[in-house]
């Protein structure tokens, strides 16, 4: 496997980074990095960490880092995760207020503990972190329940005080969305599976409306909606497909759509295959009232979607 950490890879410009990733070919991981500058979204780090975690340190080859900004990788815990010595000497500062370093979460108890630690770690007030806790809880629970991921979920986040935004990355190396969705639905491609997974009321656990006793198929729709109302990016990459919710321009209405392809978005297929799922999301923490307002929009769209889907299945009279 090969992966190259570029000088810049955030959700808006992540595609070239993904195109350059070389999936499994032998039991080693080669990591390269831009020699002058590294400024990347946490989603890049959770991908590298997830690939390297199952390997022994001697199977991971990290190019000598020369970029001055490479200490960021050290601070986020990447080398510790990979079990290698970066040779980077930094003065450790407390992470409080700025970032959540790479963390592996394998079960429900670890998730609940992690969620509790987030608020003090970022020095934000609890109201500001409603959406953040919501996103991490729902995404990681998806991994724990559906992904069958050997590494569990790998999570990292970075807070940007300049625009009061938090950037979150979550990866797993499990069965992927297509495999999960196709247990009870039919998706012919990875992108079609992502589309279904983002549609409210569609879950991989049943084809029945209303879901099962523990799954409704709402989690990813909620998260995409949080990003949309924040006018931020949301990216989901599974198998060879990428779906990217694009930023809505200020002034444009925040209408939610059940079908993610009706949102302003881009998508790409035939990317190098990621065995599992990667999610990146940016959330603005500026307006705490927005989460409550968002729930009104979700209620409206969700019920309408379920109603319409049920109506499509109604038997029709046969007039002859």
């Amino acid at each position: 496997m090969k992966i190259f950490i570029p000088n810049s890879a955030f959700l808006g410009n992540i595609n070239p980074f993904l195109r350059g990733f070389v999936p499994k070919s032998g039991e080693k991981l080669e990591i390269g990095a831009n020699e002058k500058w590294i400024a990347v979204h946490p989603v890049v780090l959770v991908m590298v960490a997830a690939l390297g975690l199952p390997l022994k340190a001697e199977q991971v080859f990290f190019e000598k880092l020369t970029a001055r900004s490479a200490h960021y990788l050290e601070r986020m815990g990447l080398f510790k995760f990979l079990g290698i010595d970066s040779g980077i000497k930094i003065i450790e500062h407390e992470s409080a207020g700025r970032f959540i370093p790479l963390t592996q979460i394998r079960n429900s108890q670890e998730l609940s503990g992690f969620i509790t630690e987030i608020v003090p770690l970022l020095h934000l007030n609890p109201l500001q972190t409603d959406a953040l806790r919501y996103v991490i809880s729902e995404l990681v629970r998806n991994v724990i329940e559906h992904a069958d991921s050997p590494v569990g979920a790998i999570v990292a986040a970075q807070y940007y005080s300049k625009n009061n935004t938090i950037r979150i990355g979550i990866s797993d190396t499990g069965v992927g969305i297509k495999s999960t969705i196709n247990r009870h639905h039919f998706a012919k491609s990875n992108l079609a599976a992502i589309q279904l997974a983002l549609t409210p009321g569609i879950t991989g656990t049943t084809s029945r409306e209303g879901g099962t006793e523990s799954n409704a198929g709402a989690g990813l729709f909620f998260i995409k909606s949080i990003a949309k109302v924040s006018r931020e990016f949301f990216v989901i990459y599974s198998g060879d497909a990428l779906y990217k919710l694009l930023k809505e321009p200020i002034g444009k209405s925040k209408k939610l759509f059940a079908d993610p392809f009706k949102d302003k978005h881009s998508s790409e297929e035939s990317l190098p295959v990621w065995q599992g799922t990667v999610v990146g999301v940016d959330i603005s923490l500026n307006d705490t009232q927005e989460f409550s307002d968002l729930l009104d929009l979700i209620r409206e769209v969700y019920s309408k979607t379920v109603r319409e889907r049920k109506r499509e299945k109604y038997r029709k009279p046969k007039f002859i």
């Binding site: 409210p200 029945r208 409306e209 209620r299 049920k310």
Partner: peptide, 20 residues
């Protein structure tokens, strides 16, 4: 609180829509 009320309402709404 307001957020929890809305989340409960969403769940009850879609369960009713599903069962109709």
């Amino acid at each position: 609180n307001e957020v929890i009320q809305k989340i409960i309402t969403i769940v009850i709404d879609y369960m009713q829509e599903s069962s109709n």
